[in-house]
Simulated scan of single mutants.
Amino acid sequence: MLKYVDYDIVFQEIPDEVTLAINLSNCPYRCKGCHSPHLQQDIGNELNESSLSGLLQVYEKAITCICFMGGDADAGELYRLADFVWRSRGGRIKTAWYSGNDKLPEDSKEHFDFVKIGPYIEALGGLDKKTTNQRLYHIGNKRKI
């Protein structure tokens, strides 16, 4: 089961997209300097098709992408929800995943338009630093509705 703590419309997470970023809890990584250490706890409300549909009904006219910030603790459920977004909105809303994994999970390419990987390493900085270990992949649309 996935739980979300909060969400916001953001403009910098995914380039050229207006993104509904959903912060998921129960992160298995313990990155030093994490900007959201409270997300390491098992807290928040269940994220399921019903709660996701509610968020999409409110924000779908304002966004072009939905980004799951975390979800590594239950990647299978995350993939299922990403596919639900894609199917239920006729492919109009792109899907993205910010993962702390250090390798791009091969099966993630089937479920997301964008995937950011890499644990946050304080000394290397985030995606805005040339020294970062984190990578953002634009996978593109490989799904059929």
Rank of each mutant, 00 (worst) to 15 (best):
C34M: 11
C67R: 08
I66M: 04
L136S: 08
S51C: 08
K94S: 11
G140F: 13
V10W: 06
R87Q: 13
V18F: 02
Y4F: 13
D42L: 02
R87I: 09
A96W: 05
L52I: 03
N48V: 02
D72K: 03
L47W: 06
E17Q: 13
C27R: 02
G33E: 12
R135I: 15
E60M: 13
E77G: 00
E122W: 10
T95W: 07
E46S: 11
S88D: 04
C67N: 13
T131H: 02
V58L: 13
E60S: 14
W97C: 05
E46R: 12
S51D: 10
I139D: 06
V18L: 02
Y137T: 06
F112H: 02
D8S: 08
Y4E: 02
A73G: 10
I22F: 02
A73S: 14
L52G: 01
A21F: 08
Y79P: 11
L136N: 09
Y29M: 13
E17S: 10
I139V: 09
L39N: 10
C27P: 02
R143F: 00
L124G: 06
R87Y: 09
K103P: 10
C65F: 00
E60C: 12
G76D: 15
S25F: 02
H111G: 00
M69Y: 14
R135T: 15
N26E: 06
E13S: 12
H35R: 05
D107P: 01
T64H: 01
R30K: 14
N26G: 02
V85C: 04
E46G: 05
K61T: 14
Y120L: 15
Y7S: 10
D6R: 10
L127Y: 02
I9Q: 07
A82M: 06
P28A: 00
E46V: 15
D72Y: 04
W97Y: 09
I43M: 11
R80W: 06
D74W: 05
V85F: 03
E122V: 09
L47H: 07
L81Q: 12
D107Y: 05
F68T: 00
K130F: 13
K130W: 13
Q41Y: 13
I139F: 07
C67Y: 08
S36V: 12
